[in-house]
């Protein structure tokens, strides 16, 4: 069997679902970040001093892009996979010869479609508010894509272990959002007391935000290569956990 066929089938199906509800899929992130740009760029931006030598609105732009990439990738796959479990349409794939890794990858790529399209929309909006240059396009691309992949896979895991729609909202609200906001989206950790700088370094999202920011500004709170390794490791770990649970049929087979 040519595995590209089932893979593309799942990706197409997910993409159709995302674009069928495009307002819900893309607009919330775009609206929120536009508000951030208006408030921090125009309204109070002039009162905030530079951050690490950059205009404040320029400094926060990469973090805001990451914020929307992370949340949309994650919630898309978590919600989408849970829904197919809930409606039992996941059985369509389970009874077929499509291997588990294709099921996981197909959903993850679907999440990446939504995450990356949202990220691009946010970047387009940012053109109206920021004067940012590109320092290193490759670092931008690698961080952009890998972050989306990693959080899509994390969302898949959430969707698989969730038993209710509440379980889908729980982790984004109480774990993901705090970690993102404390991950240096709005500040460089160098402004924090030393103790909190150390604590911050245990937050994996700091590495994604900082690394991605490096691609634009050439400034980072962390070692960009180390950030890349962390991304790779987390992506691999989530993929492997998903493979193990899928093999068991966790939450699907009895």
């Amino acid at each position: 069997m040519n595995l590209l066929v089932p893979l593309m089938t799942i990706v197409r199906k997910e993409t159709i679902r995302i674009f069928r509800v495009w307002r819900q899929s893309f607009l919330p992130s775009v609206v929120t970040t536009t508000l951030y740009f208006i408030i921090f760029g125009n309204f109070i931006g002039s009162r905030i001093s530079d951050m690490a030598g950059f205009k404040y609105v320029d400094f926060i732009m990469p973090g805001l892009v990451m914020l929307s990439v992370i949340t949309t990738s994650y919630t898309n796959v978590a919600g989408g996979f849970f829904l197919s479990k809930f409606q039992r349409s996941i059985e369509e794939m389970i009874v077929s010869p499509t291997p588990n890794w294709v099921i996981i990858a197909g959903h993850a790529i679907g999440g990446m479609v939504r995450g990356l399209v949202t990220g691009i929309l946010v970047m387009l909006v940012s053109l109206f508010f920021t004067h940012i240059k590109i320092h290193n396009i490759w670092i931008i691309l690698i961080y952009f894509i890998l972050t989306s992949a990693m959080f899509s896979l994390a969302g898949f895991l959430n969707g698989m272990i969730a038993n209710s729609f509440d379980d889908i909202a729980l982790i984004p609200n109480f774990l993901l959002t705090p970690l993102i906001y404390l991950g240096g989206v709005f500040y460089s950790i160098t402004v924090l007391p030393e103790f909190w700088q150390h604590i911050s370094k245990f937050n994996p999202i700091l590495y994604m935000v900082s690394g991605f920011r490096y691609g634009f500004l050439g400034f980072s709170d962390i070692d960009v290569f180390f950030g890349f390794v962390i991304l790779l490791v987390f992506t691999a770990v989530f993929f492997i956990i998903n493979m193990i649970l899928m093999k068991k049929g966790y939450g699907i087979k009895s």
């Binding site: 069997m1 040519n2 595995l3 066929v5 089932p6 593309m8 089938t9 799942i10 197409r12 199906k13 159709i16 369509e92 794939m93 077929s96 010869p97 499509t98």
Partner: peptide, 15 residues
Amino acid sequence: IDIVVQQAGYYGIAK
């Protein structure tokens, strides 16, 4: 139609 065509995809049948 999507439900049926997708199912074929899971069996490796081109669109």
